Amino acid sequence: MTQAHPLDPPDDPFEVARTAAADIARLTGVERHDIAVTLGSGWGRAAELIGETVATVPATEVTGFSRPALEGHVGTLRSLRTPGGRAVLVIGARTHYYEGHGVRRVVHSVRTAAATGATTMVLTNGAGGIRDHWRPGQPVLISDHINLTADSPLEGATFVDLTDLYSRRLRDLARGVDPSLDEGVYCQFRGPHYETPAEVRMAKAIGGDIVGMSTALEAIAAREAGMEVLGFSLITNLAAGISPVPLSHAEVIEAGREAEPVISDLLARVIGEL
């Protein structure tokens, strides 16, 4: 018989997040974090630049976390101290919706971050670009999202306003660091297959600029927890039908690897201003 996961119903996911936060405090020696950052594909080196590492722990030692299923995610939780003295929780262990574990596990890292005390959530990802003037390796700000998973992290009669979900204040702050940053609307598809050209045309028709398989559900959970959200996408490829060549995960990893030094420096400088 398979052992139940801590986040399976009827357990309270917020109580599990509080337990996970207590694990992080015990394992890192840091009682409270101010900022949390989820590092998606291509963003991993930012952790080296944000600040001094206080502690690094395997995510699997923290209640509710699983080993990442995707190459490009490091599988650790890292506590950093910025030069300005802020405590930053770096999440390198993202559970994707397409893994089939349910939304609770997808957003557990965000809820845990909030339980550690973090009031700002920075979400990053590697994604496909719909605008044909964007190029692989280009970072863009997420201004809004369209959730195409037909799911939500909110349970029961929980009504959360998503106006300005991706904080305009934080986007303006990021553009103060790099005025060239463009922005767009992120569409989260269920995955794990890439979108068809017709689906990309649909996304464009309904107002989307970026397509991917993460972030939107996490952002909703962050807002529910009262966090201010900043989102970045690394355009790793042009989306299906926009790109003249077939899509591959190897292409995503390679674009992220090539862009990593530049985008990591950008992210570290933005976090330094938070």
Results as ranks from 00 to 15, higher is better:
M1N: 12
Q3R: 12
H5C: 09
H5D: 15
L7D: 12
P9N: 04
P10N: 10
P13F: 00
T19S: 14
A22L: 01
D23Q: 09
A25G: 01
R26H: 10
E31R: 10
H33G: 08
H33V: 08
D34T: 03
D34H: 12
D34Q: 05
T38C: 14
W43G: 07
W43I: 08
A46E: 01
E48I: 02
G51F: 04
G51E: 00
E52K: 12
T56D: 03
T56M: 13
T56S: 12
V57C: 04
A59F: 14
E61G: 00
V62F: 05
P68C: 08
P68G: 03
P68N: 09
E71T: 15
V74W: 00
V74Y: 05
G75W: 14
T76V: 15
S79A: 15
S79E: 05
L80M: 00
T82M: 02
G85E: 11
R86S: 08
R86I: 00
V90L: 08
I91R: 03
G92I: 10
R94Q: 00
Y97P: 04
Y98D: 06
E99F: 13
G102Q: 05
H108P: 04
S109E: 02
V110E: 01
V110R: 09
A113G: 06
A114Q: 11
T116I: 13
G117I: 06
G117L: 14
A118T: 05
L123W: 02
T124D: 02
G128R: 02
G128D: 07
R131E: 15
D132Y: 03
H133G: 06
W134Q: 09
W134S: 07
G137S: 08
Q138G: 07
P139D: 07
L141M: 02
I142L: 03
N147Y: 03
T149N: 12
V160P: 11
D161Y: 09
L162Y: 11
L162R: 13
L165W: 03
L165P: 01
S167L: 10
R168D: 10
A174Y: 01
V185R: 07
V185G: 01
V185K: 01
Y186E: 01
Y186F: 14
G191P: 14
H193F: 12
Y194Q: 14
E195C: 09
E195K: 13
E199T: 00
V200K: 08
M202I: 08
I206P: 02
I206G: 10
G208C: 03
D209R: 06
T215P: 15
E218W: 02
A219I: 15
A222N: 04
M227D: 01
L230S: 11
G231E: 05
L234H: 06
I235Q: 13
N237S: 15
A239Q: 07
A240M: 03
P244L: 05
V245Q: 14
L247V: 09
A250M: 02
E251A: 15
I253Q: 15
A255M: 08
A255G: 07
A255R: 12
R257E: 15
R257S: 13
P261S: 07
L266F: 10
R269T: 03
R269N: 10
R269D: 06
V270N: 06
V270P: 11
V270A: 02
G272S: 02
L274N: 11
